[in-house]
């Protein structure tokens, strides 16, 4: 009996180990950001692509900085992130082939209903951040290498605040992804900068709501790049390029535009522009 048990167990192990190498479907690995996954866009976008091309996309959703690092090590075929400055650096280092703008959404400032900084309803993010700073109102920062965090730092600068010098206990650096940062803000009734997609798909809102939106400085551009096959020979060049081409094609752009939560669009396709 033990022998049979061991044989069955061994078969299961071999099956699992073969899982990775199984030639079910051609597949690519895409390193992307938590916002694309947690906003629910990928669960909508990828099945459409897979259905049309038979290529399955394996998404590793991390912060923009980490996603680019995965690309730098050659561990993915495509990176799909939202930090133009970091993306251009990635290209300049020779890790990427070409950057394609795909879509944008926007950041929103989230805050508690009590609104201690009195910023609700505003449309000027710089004014709002100055008020948060002045009120020493609790503010949750991602403080990771994500696109959202990079954007937050730029916005503090825009507001004329040297956040590294003025931050106090009110400024809470969590070092976590967008979702965990929102959970933290929800628990502490704090302000937090979020991408709109993740916010709309976020369930544990507590007392939080959007307090500032619509400022053009809150614009959040997503770009996609094929990892350079000359530098990383394991990159599946053709399959990866197929995915990129589809994303920027009218078909892919239409799927992005169609994705809505409660009738509200989360992402705005803008392939072919200079964004």
């Amino acid at each position: 009996m033990i022998g049979r048990l061991a044989r069955n167990a061994l078969a299961l192990v071999l099956a699992t180990l073969a899982f990775g190498a199984m030639a079910e479907n051609p597949s690519i690995v895409v390193a992307s950001t938590t916002s694309t996954q947690q906003s629910g866009l990928f669960p909508k976008l990828l099945p459409a692509f897979e259905k049309e091309t038979g290529i399955s996309v394996r998404v590793v959703a991390v912060g923009t900085g980490q996603a680019l690092d995965i690309g730098r090590r050659g561990d993915c075929d495509v990176v799909f992130v939202h930090d133009r400055v970091a993306e251009l650096a990635f290209l300049a280092e020779g890790h990427g082939v070409k950057r394609y703008p795909v879509m944008y959404n926007d950041f929103v400032l989230i805050g508690p209903k009590s609104d201690p900084a009195r910023v609700a309803g505003g449309t000027d993010i710089a004014v709002a951040l100055r008020a948060v700073n002045a009120a020493r109102a609790p503010f949750v920062s991602r403080a990771d290498k994500s696109g959202t965090y990079e954007a937050e730092l730029r916005l503090w600068k825009e507001a004329g605040i040297d956040i590294a010098a003025t931050k106090g206990p009110w400024y809470r650096e969590t070092g976590s992804g967008m979702g965990p940062a929102l959970n933290t803000a929800s628990a502490m009734d704090a302000y937090v900068l979020s991408d709109r997609g993740t916010w709309l798909n976020f369930h544990n809102r507590g007392n939080l709501g959007v307090v500032v939106q619509g400022d053009k400085r809150l614009f959040n551009q997503y770009g996609v790049m094929l990892v350079n096959p000359d530098k990383h020979p394991s990159v599946k060049k053709d399959l990866g390029q197929k995915f990129i081409d589809w994303l920027v094609s009218p078909r892919g752009q239409a799927v992005i535009a169609e994705y809505r939560i409660d009738g509200e669009p989360l992402f705005f396709p803008n392939a072919g522009t200079d964004s």
Binding site: L17, F19, R58, G74
Partner: peptide, 20 residues
């Protein structure tokens, strides 16, 4: 297991094998 690492050529990263 990373492509840039010593066992990179086996392409095991992001597979169940890597988790095992």
């Amino acid at each position: 297991l990373s492509r840039a690492g010593p066992l990179g050529r086996f392409g095991l990263l992001f597979t169940p094998t890597a988790m095992v």
